[in-house]
Simulated scan of single mutants.
Amino acid sequence: MKAIRKNYDILGKPVGPYVHAVKHNNQLYLSGLSAFGSIAQTQTIEFQAKEIFKQIEKIAKAENSSLENIIKVTIFVTDLKRIDELRTTLFEIYKENLPASSLVQVEKLFHPDLKIEIEAILAV
């Protein structure tokens, strides 16, 4: 089966050589999402994470899926000082549907205001 490359009108147009997501079989692979351009851009890591998951939820709904179907996330953060607060936020979002997860600290993201970027794989 051929992979389907997708952009979503509900998100800003990608500014680089990538698409928002690639759908293959029953899986949707999301590019890294951030709070860039939203009201959360200059806020805390928790607020930015919530904004990113709102984006993921919109994409999931567009694919007739939901946050419950997140299989895997890779989370990139610029600072681990607020990791406990971030974990609390993630538990609130995931509820009982915990995904496989990786957490990576990076020196910086593409804009200095950004504290977190999230990639995800969803069942659709």
Results as ranks from 00 to 15, higher is better:
residue 84 D to T: 10
residue 36 F to R: 07
residue 48 Q to Y: 03
residue 32 G to P: 05
residue 9 D to G: 06
residue 2 K to A: 09
residue 23 K to S: 03
residue 103 L to V: 09
residue 62 A to V: 04
residue 65 S to T: 08
residue 51 E to R: 06
residue 46 E to A: 07
residue 62 A to H: 05
residue 102 S to Y: 12
residue 55 Q to L: 06
residue 124 V to S: 14
residue 5 R to I: 10
residue 87 R to V: 10
residue 21 A to N: 06
residue 113 D to N: 15
residue 19 V to W: 12
residue 114 L to P: 02
residue 30 L to A: 04
residue 56 I to S: 03
residue 18 Y to K: 09
residue 20 H to L: 08
residue 37 G to P: 05
residue 9 D to M: 08
residue 50 K to V: 08
residue 114 L to N: 00
residue 114 L to W: 00
residue 119 E to W: 09
residue 82 R to P: 00
residue 39 I to S: 13
residue 21 A to S: 13
residue 65 S to K: 00
residue 105 Q to C: 09
residue 95 K to P: 03
residue 89 T to W: 10
residue 67 L to A: 01
residue 108 K to A: 15
residue 26 N to L: 12
residue 96 E to I: 10
residue 87 R to E: 13
residue 68 E to R: 15
residue 99 P to F: 12
residue 34 S to Y: 01
residue 16 G to A: 08
residue 91 F to G: 04
residue 51 E to N: 14
residue 111 H to N: 13
residue 59 I to P: 03
residue 62 A to M: 07
residue 118 I to H: 03
residue 50 K to A: 14
residue 8 Y to W: 11
residue 109 L to G: 13
residue 49 A to V: 09
residue 81 K to F: 10
residue 11 L to G: 05
residue 104 V to Q: 12
residue 112 P to A: 07
residue 19 V to S: 09
residue 113 D to W: 14
residue 78 T to V: 15
residue 24 H to P: 02
residue 83 I to L: 12
residue 96 E to R: 13
residue 101 S to Q: 08
residue 72 K to Q: 11
residue 15 V to E: 08
residue 13 K to W: 07
residue 36 F to K: 12
residue 63 E to N: 08
residue 59 I to G: 00
residue 38 S to A: 01
residue 121 I to M: 11
residue 56 I to R: 02
residue 93 I to N: 02
residue 23 K to Q: 15
residue 59 I to L: 03
residue 124 V to M: 14
residue 119 E to L: 13
residue 74 T to N: 15
residue 53 F to W: 04
residue 17 P to T: 03
residue 51 E to G: 00
residue 114 L to A: 00
residue 15 V to H: 06
residue 73 V to E: 06
residue 49 A to Y: 04
residue 76 F to T: 05
residue 54 K to Y: 08
residue 116 I to T: 06
residue 117 E to T: 05
residue 89 T to R: 01
residue 25 N to D: 10
residue 118 I to K: 00
residue 96 E to C: 08
residue 38 S to N: 00
residue 96 E to F: 11
residue 72 K to Y: 14
residue 98 L to N: 06
residue 57 E to I: 08
residue 69 N to C: 07
residue 70 I to E: 00
residue 59 I to W: 01
residue 88 T to Y: 14
residue 80 L to W: 01
residue 48 Q to A: 02
residue 97 N to E: 02
residue 98 L to G: 04
residue 78 T to W: 06
residue 94 Y to S: 02
residue 41 Q to F: 05
residue 35 A to M: 01
residue 124 V to T: 14
residue 71 I to K: 13
residue 90 L to F: 02
residue 30 L to F: 00
residue 113 D to C: 13
residue 124 V to R: 11
residue 85 E to C: 11
residue 104 V to K: 11
residue 63 E to T: 04
residue 13 K to D: 07
residue 90 L to T: 07
residue 64 N to E: 07
residue 22 V to T: 06
residue 62 A to Q: 10
residue 42 T to A: 15
residue 23 K to I: 15
residue 23 K to Y: 04
residue 22 V to G: 01
residue 108 K to W: 12
residue 78 T to G: 15
residue 18 Y to F: 12
residue 35 A to V: 00
residue 107 E to Y: 06
residue 12 G to M: 09
residue 122 L to Y: 05
residue 65 S to A: 01
residue 35 A to N: 01
residue 121 I to T: 14
residue 54 K to Q: 12
